[in-house]
Write a protein that binds this DNA or RNA. Structure first.
Lengths: 226, 226
DNA sequence: TTTAGAACATGATATTTGTCATCCTTTAGT
DNA sequence: ACTAAAGGATGACAAATATCATGTTCTAAA
């Protein structure tokens, strides 16, 4: 059982507000596990009995719409927590979580998190800041979905993927999403997404080879994304 | 200066976690004021030095998109708080707030809120629950904007206005929004919104007379909204 | 290695939604 | 009461997007 002190999650999440003693407690009660690409971490409506720390890998948070299509609401990457909202609200999850890559995850039981809430105000405040940040992001995405065209949203999404997850040595986006998943982020039909990617490709703004996407002209993409 | 003990905001918001002493402190430091319909409470990007308690009336939270159109992200009504996210994140506001009706509002300075955070864990947790609820709602709206047609979103919005703000004696929606504002909730062109309202009217699902809207066939509207 | 299924791509077409123009109605101010 | 301005309504049309059909290219399992 590894210590939590050096964990990347501690660096970026609300866990940074924990002191040494609390970190020891955390290391003691947590359970580590791996998740394979495509595996479901939890489903929409599940009752969680704790939160997840993402040590490595990326997952998508999705919600099934009544039209039968999944919408990707957020991507969660290493260093972030998963399931806080559900835990704090004491409600079943509103979104499901599925691994986009192989992941390393720790589970921290609710009782321990609640104890931290009760004895460490900084932790509460830090967690609150996290949720507030998520809320701000959700509001921004919401406005984009309401006001921007599919083409603009695709440009925004490509730049987001570039800036958030970085690129490989060949400049291609590190995170690999299927066309279907990209469509599910921007909220459009898969065919429309594929067509627009082709258009971007023909315009020379991006380069496609298989699943690889290289952003060749970020300036033009940014102009679209505004 | 009225006491906060009986205030409706206390009943519904995080303030319910405050004890008698804290409520006295609150009553002591707050400032009450009225806001006229159409007045701006704060603008997107403003730095707030506290939070607002909505004692009466309704306001809209909006964000200006780069296409020049305002998107209504949320409606805030009596009993709710305003500006928590900005205060907690210690950032300028992400959304602007404008009164849709005459309002009664109290302002509580940041220093006092932060003190409550520091001495009263229940208050922190309660505030966190509020933000979490907002996040869940934002995610749900986001999915609807991404996956539902304009017609479906209009049906959803009409039912939401009905259920949240209630009806007058003549069954018409209590909250009066311009066609432009309704469009700004569902994220569409004003003309499209007007056209669909006309369609609903012709189908007998709603009745329009001036600004008044009466939902005549909620069952059909719900079928659309799913 | 072969092969079935998934993912990707593209054309044709239908549907939805936005834009522009115009007119009507209500409202607020003189 | 009159008038200007805003809000509401509607038609004609354009643009964006979805849907359906079909073919191609990957990919993983037998």
């Amino acid at each position: 059982m590894s210590k939590c002190e050096q964990c990347i999650v501690r660096e970026f999440s609300a866990l940074k507000a924990l002191n040494k003693d609390e970190l020891l407690k955390l290391a003691d009660c947590k359970t580590s596990f791996t998740v394979k690409k495509g595996d479901i971490i939890f489903e929409e409506g599940d009752s969680l009995d704790g939160i997840f720390c993402v040590k490595d890998g990326v997952c998508k948070l999705t919600k099934l719409s009544s039209n039968g299509k999944d919408q990707i609401v957020k991507l969660v990457t290493k260093g972030e927590l998963l399931g806080q909202r559900s835990l704090i609200s004491e409600e079943p999850t509103n979104l499901g979580a599925t691994a986009l890559e192989d992941m390393q995850v720790c589970f921290v039981p609710k009782s321990q998190v609640m104890e931290f809430f009760n004895v460490n105000n900084k932790f509460s405040l830090s967690m609150m800041k996290n949720v507030c940040h998520d809320l701000k992001e959700a509001d921004n995405v919401l406005v984009n979905l309401a006001q921007k065209s599919v083409k603009e949203r695709l440009a925004i999404t490509l730049l987001y993927l570039h800036d958030t997850f970085g690129v490989n040595a060949d400049e291609s986006l590190k995170i690999q999403l299927s066309r279907d998943e990209i469509s599910s982020i921007i909220g459009t039909a898969t065919e429309s997404c594929i067509r627009l990617l082709s258009d971007f490709n023909k315009s020379g703004w991006i380069e496609l080879s298989g699943k690889k996407i290289i952003l060749k002209n970020k300036k033009e993409l940014r102009k679209l994304a505004e």
